[in-house]
């Protein structure tokens, strides 16, 4: 009697476990499928950059001309070649110009944000003075405004300072962006108060506390701001589009879209090359990036 019941119970358990296992398998399937679809554009780009010119021409023909056929875009190249990469690296000097423009914008902006933004963030996180709350509210509201809203005011000030058609006209407004201040503020808030007070009791001044405790312990927040900033300013489009008429100043992000499919192999290679720095920073700084994303949303 008992044995029978036991057996039935065991069978029911087994069935439940099996059901759970299939359920898990389906969920894992969905998770991986989503990941695959998300990475698809990247895979397409890399594979495209390794295809021969003829293969691309015949595959993309329908998109290029108005033929009444569909593209035949096979994922993997029939005869992989590095031709377009060699062309990109050795025959296209203008590519270096736009690439370096992009790097100048990123480097200038981030450097400025460190010099200007880090002390601001420290002041908001650690100082106490009248008007602090109001000022911080202003900073937060500013960081939330889309570029469309600030476009005209941005233009007016750049015109007055004669910074239109000048890389500084892109860099300087970025330096005073309030978003990195907010991210680093979050990082500085996480430093235990006791530590800072102990340092002050021992006779350290504001500056010593800032340099010897604040910077090292707030480095995660600073790292997050740098990674988020790199990704943002490396793919900047609206600002250069509006304020840079001179094509020799254009960054990569304006140059790439206008290559066109008639030079598809080069377009693919140039696109892949253009995302390498960003993906590199992403891979190096993924922990910082995640911390930064979380810091945008939460306290401690």
């Amino acid at each position: 009697m008992h044995k029978k019941q036991d057996l039935a119970w065991q069978r029911a358990q087994k069935r439940a476990r099996l059901k759970k296992k299939t359920g898990n398998l389906i969920v894992s399937g969905i998770l991986f499928l989503t990941a695959f679809l998300i990475s698809m554009p990247l895979i397409l780009l890399i594979c495209g950059s390794l295809k021969g010119t003829d293969e691309l021409k015949s595959a993309l023909g329908p998109v290029l001309s108005d033929m009444d056929a569909m593209v035949e875009f096979k994922l993997f190249p029939k005869y992989p070649t590095l031709r377009h990469w060699i062309e990109l690296l050795f025959d296209k000097p203008e590519y270096y110009v736009v690439f370096i423009n992009s790097l100048k914008i990123v480097a200038g902006t981030l450097l400025g944000q460190m010099i200007i933004g880090v002390p601001s963030a420290w002041a908001f996180a650690r100082f106490s003075f009248p008007g602090r709350k109001l000022l911080f509210t202003v900073y937060i509201s500013l960081m939330m405004m889309p570029f469309s809203v600030t476009m005209l005011s941005n233009y007016l000030v750049l015109k007055d300072l004669s910074l239109l058609d000048n890389l500084w006209g892109i860099i300087l407004p970025g330096v005073f962006s309030t978003f990195p201040v907010f991210i680093m503020y979050r990082g500085f808030c996480g430093i235990p108060k006791e530590l800072l007070e102990a340092a002050k009791v021992d006779g350290a001044g504001e500056f010593q506390v800032f340099f010897h405790i604040g910077l090292p312990l707030g480095s995660a927040g600073i790292g997050s701001a740098l990674v988020l900033g790199f990704l943002e300013y490396f793919s900047l489009i609206e600002q250069p589009l509006a304020f840079l008429k001179d094509r020799s100043l254009w960054p990569l992000s304006l140059y790439l879209p206008q290559i066109g499919l008639s030079d598809a192999g080069f377009a693919f290679a140039a696109s892949v090359m253009g995302l390498i720095p960003a993906v590199f920073v992403f891979l190096l700084g993924q922990d910082y990036l995640e911390k930064g994303i979380i810091a945008t949303g939460m306290k401690e």
């Binding site: 990704l231 304006l254 696109s271 995302l275 992403f282």
Partner: peptide, 17 residues
């Protein structure tokens, strides 16, 4: 998270295709 790192300009080609 990868798409966050990919500049819009680099995927335009894929979107067009």
């Amino acid at each position: 998270l990868l798409p966050m790192a990919i500049p819009a300009a680099a995927v335009v080609l894929v979107w067009k295709l």
